[in-house]
Design a protein around this nucleic acid. Structure first.
Length: 623
RNA sequence: GCCGGCGUAGCUUAAUGGCAAAGCAACCGCCUUGUAAGCGGUAGAGUGGGAGUUCGACUCUCCCCGCCGGCUCCA
C-alpha cells in the first residue's frame, strides 16, 4: 500500500472500474458530476450545519450521491445546486488524484463517519468504497480526487477537468431517502439523483424517452383501456379490480396456459383461500413470513386461520390424501391460486406489486431420479410461454441463499444438492443466466425469469424452484419399487409468476396493442351511414358465431371519428362498411397499424382472423 | 414503513388570498358521412378528508388518506 504511483498511472488504473458495456466517457462524466454535485450540496447546506457525504456512483443513465444533511432538502435546493454545478463546470477545475495511506485518509476524513467506515473496509482489503467485495486479483488503493478544493475518497475514474461536462447536458432529477449501505436498520441518508450526458441533445433525447415510457406505463394504459382499476378508499390499496376488458385478456392467458399444461400432463386442483395457521406453521411460512402476511383470522371456537400467502401447503395436502406409488410420479398439480401478502404501502405499484395476486401455480412431486428431467421440462415450458408473447428480453437468474441471513429453512447439504440440480438442468439450454445470492425462496433455491418495465425497473415473472424442505416438513412419502417408503422432491413453478404482474408487463410490452387473440375487442364495425348499420350488425353476428369479439359503432359520429375511436382503443381490425360492401357482401379491412387491406369477402376475413387467433399469432394478416 | 414531490368534473388541465374555468368523454339534437376528431346544445366538481389562520382559502399552516419517484422488501 505504500508504493505510491504517479497521478498519470492512477488515472490509467482507475479505468478498470468502468463496468463492461458502460460507455467509458459517460461513466467518467457521471462520476465527475456526482463529485461536482457533492461540492455544490456542501456549499448549499453547510451554513445550516454539518454535511456528511457517503457514496456517489454513476448508475445507468446518470448518477446519485448520498448525504447526511442538516435539514430537509427541497426542490429549491435542487435548483440552486444545479445552478451552482454549472458554475463549477465552467470553472474548468482539474480533477487531481493522489494515493494516500489509510491513516492519512482517516485524518483527512476525521469528520466524515461514512468515509471512515469505507476507509476501514478498504484498509482491510476486502471491499471497495461502495462496500462491495473486491475481486481477488484487484489490489485496493486508497485514492483521493479533488476538484476546486473539494476532496473526495474515490477510486475514480474521472474526467480531466470539470469543463469536460456540459451544464446543458445535466439535470438533477429527484430527492429520495436511501439507507446507508442499503440496510433499513442503518440511518437513512438523502439521495439526490441526476442524469448527465455528453451534450444537450443527448439529455433531451433521454428526457423524451422518459416521456414516451410514461405513455406506455401500464397504470396509464390500464385506466385508458379499461383493463383494471384500484380503488383504495373502499376496496383497498394493492387490490386489483379486473375490469371487463382486462378480464377478457386474463381469461385468454389462463386458457392458453391450461392448454399447455394439459398437454404436459398436469392435473387441476382447487383449494381454499384460507387455512388453519398450523398448516403454515408446518410449512414454515408462519412465522418466517409473518411480517408479509395479513393478520390471522379467528373463529368463535378459537381457531386461527391465515389468508394464504402461498398455495403450496394446500397442494401438499392433496398429495397427502392417501398412499402414493412411485408409479404416480411425477404428480403435477396446477391451480391459479390467489394469494395475499402484506406489502408495505410504499412498495405497491400498479399491477406489478400488489397485495392480492393470482399465481399460475403448479407443484410437481417427483422421485429424485426424475428431478433433472422434470426441471428441464418445466424450464422448456416457461421459455415456450414467454416466447409466445415475443418476450425475448428477459434475464434468467439462479437465486441462491444469502449465507448471512437466517430466514431459510433446511440444512446445508439439501440446499447444495438442490442448487446443483438447477445448474445441471440449465446446462441443457442455450440460456444465459446469472447466479445471485440472497434471491432464493426461504425453502429452496430457484430459477427466476426477470424482465424490465418501461421505466427500466426489474420484475420477476416466471419462477421455478426446487424444494427438498417442504417434503421433509410435511413428511411426504411414496412407496418405491423396493416396496419401501421414500421422500419425493417438489418443484414449484409459475411461468407467468402472477397474472397481475404478467398483465402489467404485457400491457407495457405491447403498449396496450394486444395481439389479436388477446385483444379485448378484436373487431370494430364501422358503418359509414346509419343505413349501413343493419349490414354491420349482420357481419358482426357472423364473426361472433366464429368466436370473435366484435362491436358495432352505431353512434352518430362520422366514419372518421369512429375509426379514430377504435384506433385509440387499439382495436386490431376496423371493418368499414358502406354501400359498396353491403352490396357485395364484403368488408373494407383497416388494421390498427393504419394499413388498409382493402375489401375482402366476409367469409375470407373470418377465415383469416380465426386462423390467426387459433395460432395465437402476433400478426394481424397472414404472411 | 422511510425520504422527496403531488392531489381541482369520468379523463387531461386552468384559476397563487376575492364569483371554481376549459377541452375531451357523457347526454340531447342537427348532419348521413369512404379510412385518426362534422356542428350546436345540456348536464357534471365546491377543489382527497379533517382542523386552523383570515372579512374571505383551490391558494397559507397542521394532522390524516391516497398517488408518483426512490430506499427497503417482493410474484
Amino acid at each position: 500500500m505504500s508504493n505510491l504511483v504517479a497521478e498519470k498511472d492512477l488515472y490509467q488504473e482507475a479505468e478498470r472500474y468502468i463496468p463492461r458495456g458502460y460507455d467509458a466517457e459517460l461513466y467518467k462524466i457521471r462520476h465527475s458530476a456526482a463529485h461536482i454535485m457533492a461540492q455544490a450540496v456542501k456549499e448549499r447546506f453547510e451554513p445550516d450545519g454539518p454535511v456528511h457525504v457517503a457514496i456517489g456512483p454513476p448508475i445507468e443513465d446518470g448518477f446519485y450521491y448520498d448525504f447526511e444533511l442538516p435539514r430537509q432538502p427541497h426542490q429549491e435546493d435542487l435548483a440552486w445546486v444545479e445552478q451552482r454545478m454549472g458554475e463549477i463546470i465552467r470553472g474548468k477545475h482539474p480533477f487531481e488524484v493522489r494515493e494516500v495511506s489509510a491513516d492519512e485518509a482517516r485524518a483527512l476524513f476525521a469528520d466524515e463517519p461514512y468515509k471512515l467506515e469505507l476507509i476501514d473496509g478498504l484498509a482491510a482489503g476486502q471491499v471497495d468504497e461502495y462496500g462491495n467485495p473486491l475481486p481477488a486479483d484487484v489490489q485496493p488503493r486508497i485514492t483521493l480526487y479533488q476538484q476546486d478544493g473539494f476532496v473526495d475518497l474515490c477510486r475514480g475514474p474521472h474526467v480531466r477537468h470539470t469543463g469536460k461536462l456540459k451544464a446543458s447536458a445535466l439535470k438533477l432529477m429527484s430527492i429520495a431517502g436511501a439507507y446507508w449501505r442499503g440496510d433499513e436498520n442503518n440511518p437513512q441518508l438523502t439521495r439526490i439523483y441526476g442524469t448527465a450526458w455528453r451534450k444537450q441533445s443527448e439529455l433531451e433525447a433521454h428526457l423524451a424517452l422518459l416521456e414516451e415510457a410514461k405513455a406506455r406505463d401500464h397504470r396509464k394504459l390500464g385506466k385508458e383501456l379499461g383493463l383494471y382499476a384500484i380503488e383504495p378508499q373502499l376496496v383497498g390499496q394493492g387490490l386489483i379490480l379486473w375490469m371487463p376488458n382486462g378480464a377478457i385478456v386474463r381469461d385468454q392467458l389462463e386458457r392458453f396456459l391450461k392448454e399447455e399444461q394439459l398437454a404436459a400432463g398436469y392435473v387441476p386442483a382447487y383449494t381454499p383461500q384460507i387455512g388453519k395457521i398450523d398448516l403454515f406453521k408446518t410449512s414454515g411460512h408462519y412465522p418466517y413470513y409473518k411480517e408479509s402476511q395479513f393478520p390471522p383470522l379467528e373463529d368463535e371456537d378459537g381457531n386461527a386461520y391465515l389468508l394464504r400467502p402461498m398455495n403450496c401447503p394446500f397442494h401438499i395436502m392433496i398429495y397427502k390424501q392417501g398412499m402414493r406409488s412411485y408409479r404416480e410420479l411425477p404428480l403435477r398439480i396446477a391451480e391459479f391460486g390467489t394469494v395475499y401478502r402484506w406489502e408495505k404501502s410504499g412498495e405497491l405499484n400498479g399491477m406489478t406489486r400488489v397485495r392480492g395476486f393470482t399465481v399460475d401455480d403448479a407443484h410437481m412431486f417427483v422421485r429424485p431420479d426424475q428431478l433433472e428431467q422434470e426441471f428441464a421440462d418445466v424450464v422448456a415450458l416457461v421459455l415456450k410461454i414467454l416466447r409466445a408473447f415475443g418476450l425475448e428480453d428477459f434475464k434468467a437468474r439462479v437465486g441462491i441463499r444469502d449465507p448471512q441471513s437466517d430466514k431459510y429453512v433446511g440444512d446445508d447439504a439439501v440446499w447444495e444438492a438442490a442448487t446443483q440440480s438447477i445448474l445441471n438442468a440449465l446446462d441443457g439450454f442455450d440460456l444465459e443466466y446469472a447466479v445471485e445470492e440472497g434471491e432464493a425462496a426461504f425453502y429452496g433455491p430457484k430459477l427466476d425469469f426477470v424482465v424490465r418495465d418501461v421505466l427500466k425497473r426489474e420484475w420477476q415473472l416466471g419462477t421455478v424452484q426446487v424444494d427438498m424442505n417442504l417434503p421433509e416438513r410435511f413428511e411426504l412419502e411414496y412407496i418405491g419399487e423396493d416396496n419401501a417408503p421414500h421422500r419425493p422432491i417438489m418443484i414449484h413453478r409459475a411461468p407467468f409468476g402472477s397474472l397481475e404482474r404478467f398483465m402489467g408487463v404485457l400491457i407495457e410490452h405491447f403498449a396496450g396493442a394486444f395481439p389479436l387473440w388477446l385483444a379485448p375487442q378484436q373487431v370494430a364495425m364501422v358503418p359509414i351511414a346509419d343505413r349501413h348499420v343493419p349490414y354491420a350488425e349482420a357481419v358482426a353476428q357472423q364473426l361472433r358465431a366464429a368466436g370473435m369479439r366484435v362491436a358495432v359503432d352505431d353512434s352518430n359520429n362520422r366514419m372518421n371519428a369512429k375509426i379514430r375511436d377504435a384506433q385509440l382503443r387499439k382495436v386490431p381490425y376496423m371493418l368499414v362498411v358502406g354501400d359498396n360492401e353491403a352490396d357485395e357482401g364484403t368488408v373494407a379491412v383497416r388494421l390498427r397499424s393504419g394499413e388498409n387491406l382493402g375489401a375482402m369477402a366476409v367469409a375470407d376475413f373470418a377465415a383469416m382472423a380465426t386462423q390467426l387467433i387459433a395460432d395465437r399469432s402476433l400478426e394481424l394478416a397472414l404472411a
